[in-house]
């Protein structure tokens, strides 16, 4: 199961979609909207995707993981749009015969998702400013009105 959705993620059905009599282990990861980041307070996150490419890349991540671990089933569901604190942004579920492979494969899928899948989050800070999150790119002044210019 691969899905991008604007609806609340039903993680029970995501989990059920990977369960199997052949799998002794099922691992579910839930990414949730966190309040504090480096001392700043978040009120919401806004997620945007390049949907066609994101779905293609998510399918590739599952195939890549299947080539490395004995995966019975894997599912990835990513939420888009505005998410409030505590809401679930992503669910990854993996089933394998034994537990170590399920943990390793699940973690691998998550790490790769964060590197290659074209989905972006925008911080909505408690001070009213917004900021796109782009790893490796310094915040650009437009959305940081209180930032002092670098001399």
């Amino acid at each position: 199961m691969i899905q991008l959705t604007h609806d609340v993620i039903d993680y029970q059905s995501v989990t059920e979609s990977v369960r199997s009599d052949q799998a002794g282990a099922v691992v579910l990861f839930l990414g949730t909207v966190r309040e504090m980041t480096a001392g700043r307070q978040t009120v919401a996150l806004e997620y945007q995707a390049f949907p066609q490419m994101a779905e293609t890349k998510l399918a590739e991540l599952i195939e890549e993981a299947k080539s490395r671990w004995p995966i019975q089933n894997a599912a990835i569901v990513h939420r888009l749009g505005r998410l409030e604190l505590g809401e679930i942004s992503v669910a990854v579920a993996v089933s394998t015969p034994h537990r170590r492979d399920a943990f390793a494969a699940g973690q691998h899928i998550l790490e790769r998702l964060k590197e290659v899948v074209p989905i972006w989050k925008q911080e909505n800070w408690a001070d009213g400013t917004t900021e796109w999150v782009h790893p490796g790119v310094n915040a650009i002044s437009q959305s940081q009105p209180d930032q002092a210019p670098v001399q």
Partner: peptide
């Protein structure tokens, strides 16, 4: 698919451009 700097482009291509991703 991601394209490296050497990839030749054509007007018929569907081209997208974006800063580093931050899903999850």
């Amino acid at each position: 698919n991601y394209a490296d700097d050497q990839t030749v482009l054509s007007p018929a291509d569907e081209i997208a451009c974006f800063p580093p991703v931050s899903g999850g």
